[in-house]
Design a protein around this nucleic acid. Structure first.
Length: 645
DNA sequence: CTTACTACAGTTTTT
DNA sequence: CTGTAGTAAG
């Protein structure tokens, strides 16, 4: 297929700052890919001087694969296609000396971060999870806004915020002494260093000569600053974004960055991609009318050359049981008449918990389905434990991982022993691992628990030594000697769960060993790199097999961004759900409207809404009203199906 | 040190 | 209503 006029213009404008406003389904990924090959083939850029930055590993992978199809493989081997965070990590690894970081730092995931904050703030918050969560997001917010602890203290008005700023300081000191970084640091540290150090800035600007950024509307302040520092005054870059699909403001995304771009780069060329290749005219009309209720920084109106399409249906139900029943009935009938596949259908909802009612009905009718929930593979307890062991092999000083596995499986090291160890480690200022190796500890304390600890650390340190030269043998020995499978069978609620957990562990182990051996990948990598990949990427990405099965797709609206389906059910169209009650309270309806817009624009051929009159919430029924978004749509294009009692 | 009970909170979540 | 995390008793 040929590029349309605007797409062609977007590809070929490479001499200055460029903003591509790409509406839903307008072929933006294709433009990015074409632009990369245009830069290489027509403009003489060397691949190693081009960087394309995305938010997700999935998007990065897609671009990589598609560039590979259009360009010769050897040409693009050094092309930089990565996420913001992976690029930041690469930067930190190269510049760790200037950042005053030891080379063997470990990366924290959100769980470990929460755990650390909980631990260091117990005396203030007494394990109040809500407060710790608030603190976690506050610190993240500060970091994303390039605010250090001192500035945070100055900015804080309330007593609570001052305490939070103090905790931020404690947390920073903690991460510095233990040589750990969190996700936000991967952006923050490179940004601060590039800003301060002109030599390094020049070096990186010479390295990355053309920058492309995908999903630009999702960038936060520090990411935008990073972009500016990387492109410098040369300003050879392209950002691609759509303000109507900005649905991550609660994570710090600033759609205003689109406007800032115009101010910071007056010569900015703005190119709009408004031709939609996905949806029927009717679906686009409805989407355009809905989103016109939001204020806009750039005017944009999607159009389609496809047929007008079927009328949109609205299914009303008494409660969520009937809602799911009627939606699935509709799906079954539609599939029989149109002879479609199950995988042509998607059920989209606001909150993960809404999937339950649908799952029940799908099971009842024996319909294959796939729920994409974001409870990552890595958050499963059996995986977290195993990972903690593997992290200890690469960085024994990782106290969080050490604490997690110290008594898993049970080896008679209890709370009292751990408390003594913790105290002692603070006195001699060493990590828990190294404190446990210190014979002085056992001269001070002599208890059953301490003797268990001494045995454990003797065993563990040998595995750690082994891992330095023979990581695969070390991992195999480890799994065998802790008898992890046995422990799982013992602790699991039932045998089904145990089998699943053992299966999960084997998936992870096989993946790690494949990586270490270099199977299935171009190059074998070290155990350090394996751990890094696991924290930053998602291993599950390897298991493609499920994607190709014929299954009805269920997911949240957030998770559906970037995808498309022939037939879409947008369920739970009620006030309080979409828009969500919290967003109504915070007067953040615009983002909820964009969420609805994202949902609508996923549909290619048919779109069906559903809602309930009453919905169970925490056990009791609450009355609900149709979402205001349904009422904003042109009613000529909707059919409200009668309620069945 | 382990097990069992109670209290409580409960959107979205790219890395 | 559900799942989880922290505490109190075994």
């Amino acid at each position: 297929m040929k590029l349309n006029c605007n797409q062609k213009q977007a590809v070929e404008f490479v001499t200055g700052p460029c903003l591509i406003l790409a509406g839903a389904g307008s072929g933006k990924t294709r433009v990015i890919i074409e632009k990369i090959s245009y830069l290489i083939n027509q403009r003489g850029y060397l691949p190693q001087h081009i960087a394309a930055i995305t938010f997700t590993n999935k998007a990065a992978r897609e671009i990589k694969e598609r560039v590979m199809q259009t360009t010769q493989q050897k040409k693009i081997s050094r092309l930089i296609i990565s996420t913001f965070h992976a690029l930041g990590l690469e930067f930190i690894k190269q510049e760790y000396e200037s950042l005053k970081i030891k080379p063997h730092f470990s990366l924290l995931n959100t769980y470990d971060q929460f755990f650390i904050l909980k631990k260091i703030t117990t005396k203030y918050f007494k394990n109040n999870n809500v407060l710790v969560k608030n603190l976690t997001s506050m610190i993240s917010h500060w970091k994303n806004n390039l605010v250090n602890p001192i500035q945070a203290m100055q900015l804080s008005q309330s007593q609570r915020d001052k305490l939070f700023a103090h905790c931020y300081d404690l947390y920073n000191k903690h991460t510095q002494t233990f040589n750990i970084l969190d996700f936000d640091d991967l952006i923050l540290l490179p940004t601060l260093l590039l800003d301060k150090n002109k030599t390094i800035q020049k070096k990186w600007q010479d390295y990355i000569r053309y920058l492309l950024v995908d999903e630009y509307q999702d960038t936060n302040i520090s990411q935008y600053k990073l972009i500016k520092l990387l492109v410098g005054t040369r300003a050879h870059f392209t950002v691609v974004g759509d303000d109507d699909q900005s649905i991550y403001s609660w994570r710090g995304a600033q759609p205003q960055n689109l406007v800032l771009l115009k101010n910071d780069f007056p010569s900015l060329k703005v190119i709009k991609l408004e031709e939609n290749y996905r949806s029927s005219k009717r679906i686009l009309k409805v989407a355009n009318i809905l989103i016109s209720n939001n204020s806009h920084m750039f005017k944009k109106k999607l159009f389609s050359t496809l047929e007008y399409g079927e009328v949109l249906k609205v299914i009303t139900a008494i409660d969520e049981d009937q809602e799911s029943e009627r939606v699935i009935q509709e799906l079954i009938t539609h599939r029989l008449i149109k002879k479609t596949s199950y995988s042509d259908y998607a059920i989209l909802y606001r909150g993960n918990y809404q999937s339950k009612a649908f799952e029940k009905v799908l099971v009842k009718y024996k319909i294959p389905y796939k729920i994409t929930n974001n409870i990552s593979f890595f958050l499963r307890s059996e995986i977290r434990n195993l990972l903690a062991y593997i992290r200890i092999l690469t960085n024994p000083d990782d106290d969080i991982s050490f604490l997690r596995i110290i008594n898993i499986p049970k080896r008679a090291i209890g709370l009292t022993t751990i408390k003594k160890l913790d105290m002692f480690s603070k006195n001699i200022n060493k990590s828990l691992y190294h404190t446990s190796l210190d014979l002085k500890l056992y001269q001070h304390f002599n208890s059953k628990g301490m003797r268990s600890l001494q045995n454990f650390i003797y065993w563990l340190s040998n595995i750690v030594k082994l891992a330095k030269h023979k990581p695969i043998l070390a991992i195999r020995t480890l799994i065998q000697e802790i008898q992890y499978e046995k422990w799982i069978v013992k602790t699991a609620i039932n045998t089904n769960i145990a089998t699943m957990q053992i299966n999960n562990i084997n998936i992870l182990l096989n993946w790690i060993i494949d990586m270490l051996l270099g199977n299935k990948v171009d190059q074998a990598i070290t155990l350090d790199q394996v751990v890094e990949r696991i924290t930053l990427h998602n291993v599950v990405e390897n298991s493609k097999s499920t994607e190709e099965q014929d299954q009805v797709q269920l997911m949240t609206l957030h998770a559906s961004k970037g995808l498309e389906f022939p037939h879409v059910f947008l369920v739970g169209m009620e006030e309080g759900l979409l828009p969500h009650q919290n967003s109504i309270n915070n007067n953040n309806i615009d983002e909820e409207r964009r969420l609805a817009y994202v949902g609508i624009t996923r549909a290619k051929k048919t779109l069906i809404f559903s809602l309930c009159q009453q919905r169970r919430q925490y056990g009791q029924f609450i009355e609900s009203e149709p979402s205001r978004f349904l009422l904003e749509l042109p009613q000529d294009d909707l059919i409200w199906k009668a309620l069945i009692h």
